[in-house]
Structure formats: structure tokens, C-alpha cells
Amino acid sequence: MIPNYQDCMKPFLLALQKSGTEEVKLRDIINSIADYFELTDEERVEPLPSGKQSILDNRVGWARTYLAKAGLIDSPRRAHFVITDRGITALYTPSLEINNQYLKQFDEFVAFKNLSNTKETVEDTRQAFIKPDIEDDNDITPDEALRNAYKTINDALAQDILERTRNVSPAFFEQLLIDLLIAMGYGGTEEGTAHALGKSGDNGVDGVINQDPLGVDQIYIQAKRYKQGNNVSSGDIRDFFGALNLHNAQKGLFITTSDFTRSAKDTAQKLSSRMVLVNGHDLAKLMLRYNIGSRDEQVLYMKRIDEEFFEE
């Protein structure tokens, strides 16, 4: 299992201690920590949700930051580190746990944490989600806490937007799907898309939308505005599959505001790889992603130091 960032602190110091006064590359330290915890090859490279960095690299990076702020390590040059006298002292007692609680004894670390904690969020409601995850004794990194808070907020929004979508009129639901599909790049123009979706109930399909502006490829659509618990059955899937064959259609999209039964999913998988199922959860996520029924309120940019900028 990938260690949390506080668990990385002691092996970080141990990796530096082995080299004495010589500098150690950050990558060598990360590899040493991975060996210390006997991580598998998959765990060593498992990415963050962003895909831009591995979880291990990210957590070791936060351990490095906190150790440096507490004065236990120093960085003579980019991505190279040495252990300080304070760091050596911390390793005198093998059983000593080195974590945020231990680092609090150093004024530099306390000043750093106090500075971080004085930054106020725009909304107290957002802070209510975030604050429990960034306490000193928590094992997740600050950016992991931010991602968790983002997921919590978005999950709540998705549930709210789905409930509202289930209660709109049929005409409003049709327009909602038009707006979503256009935002996703289908249909070319709203006029063309609206015309296509207007062919309601045409031999088992609710609409046809162009996959490209010229209409070279088309997608046939079935949409069910169902309440929660009223799930799409395997019979509905077979009916839609028959409609696709009747129209000699190559691609089908089945959208519902509820969900699909297990047998419906199995039936869709067995009958055709041409059919895509979108349940209420997926629909809500797409609406949030493309700002259909929602809007961006605040954008937070996560910054990092540009090491190359400071090279002389």
C-alpha cells in the first residue's frame, strides 16, 4: 500500500542519512522510500486523478516540503537534498515517530503552518468540507484534501441537478439534451440538433443526432425521464436494439435519469457494442462537466515552483 505523506518523513531522512554529507537526488530518495515500503511496480507509478504525477511522488513531495520547513533537511540545489543536524538528531531514537506532531516543536514549522491556516476561503460552506481534512494529524496531503473536498461538493451538486432534471417537463428535458449534446460537440448547430431530436417516437427511437456537422455519421437516441428506482429493463434494451436494426443504424445512445438493471446492462453488452448506456449519475456528471444547468463559480489554480526559472 502506498504510504501517506507523514509516513514518508522518516524514510526520507534515513535515505539522506545513508549518504552522510553528500547530496542525494530527489528521484533516488523516492526510489529508496519505495524500497523501504516494498512497493510493487504498479504502486510506484500509480497516478493521481490528474494523471500528471504519481501518488508516491506527490506524497514524498509533501513530506519533503514539511521536513524542509521544519529545518530537518536542506536543498543546496535543485532536486538535491542533504540532512541537517536537526534531522540527524530526529533519527537518534529509532522508535521515534516523525510526523507533523513532532515537527510542531520547531518554530519555523509552526510559523509556516500558521501562515497557511490564515488563508480564508471564499465561502464558509466550502470550508466546512475542506477543514476536517487538513488538520495536522491527518494523513492526507493538502492537495488530496482539496481533491476530496472538490469531489464531495461535486457529488452533492450531481445529486441535486439529477433530482431537478427528473422533475422537468418533457419539452424541457428534450431541450436539456439538445444543449448537452451540442456542448459535447455533436449536432453541429442547435437548429439541426433540435430538428433531429424532434422526431419523437419514430419507430422506437426518440431522436437522431449528427455526430459531425455534415451529418456523415448519425447517432440514434432513446431517452427515458424516469424517477429513481424505475430502472430501464432488458426489454427496453431489446426494443431499442431492434429499432437500431430497423434503421440500419451503426450507433445508439440510451439515456435515462434513473438507472439500468443488471440484466439490461448484460443484454446491451451481448447484443451490440454499438450501444452506449448513460444512466442518471453519468448524465448529471456530464451536465456538470459541460455546464448544463450549472455554472463555474470559482476557479482554483494549483501552483508549483518552476525550478528551471531559478537556475542561473
Rank of each mutant, 00 (worst) to 15 (best):
L146N: 03
R225E: 11
M275G: 05
T141V: 01
I182L: 08
T65I: 15
D28L: 09
D41K: 02
S169V: 04
R78C: 12
K119E: 06
N291D: 04
P76S: 07
I29W: 03
D160N: 14
P47A: 05
T141K: 08
G87W: 00
N154R: 09
V299K: 00
R225V: 05
I305G: 13
P170Q: 08
L286Y: 12
D28T: 05
R262W: 07
P132G: 06
A68S: 15
L271Q: 12
L162P: 05
E108R: 00
I134L: 04
I30D: 08
E97T: 01
L283Y: 07
F81W: 07
L14K: 12
E163M: 13
K251Q: 08
A34H: 02
D202N: 12
L39T: 00
Q127K: 09
G71A: 04
I140T: 08
I2T: 06
G71L: 14
F241W: 14
N248S: 10
T125S: 11
D206P: 03
I292F: 11
R166G: 11
I255Q: 10
E144F: 02
L146Y: 04
L277S: 02
I73H: 08
T141H: 03
K151T: 01
I140R: 00
N4I: 01
G235Q: 12
D139Y: 11
G185K: 11
I33H: 05
I33T: 00
D212S: 11
L177H: 11
L180H: 06
G188H: 04
F106T: 02
S258F: 09
I98H: 04
D136C: 05
P76F: 06
F241C: 08
G198C: 03
E120Q: 08
M1F: 02
G252E: 14
L253P: 03
I219E: 05
R164K: 10
F172R: 10
M9E: 14
D137T: 11
D212T: 01
P11C: 04
T152R: 14
L157G: 13
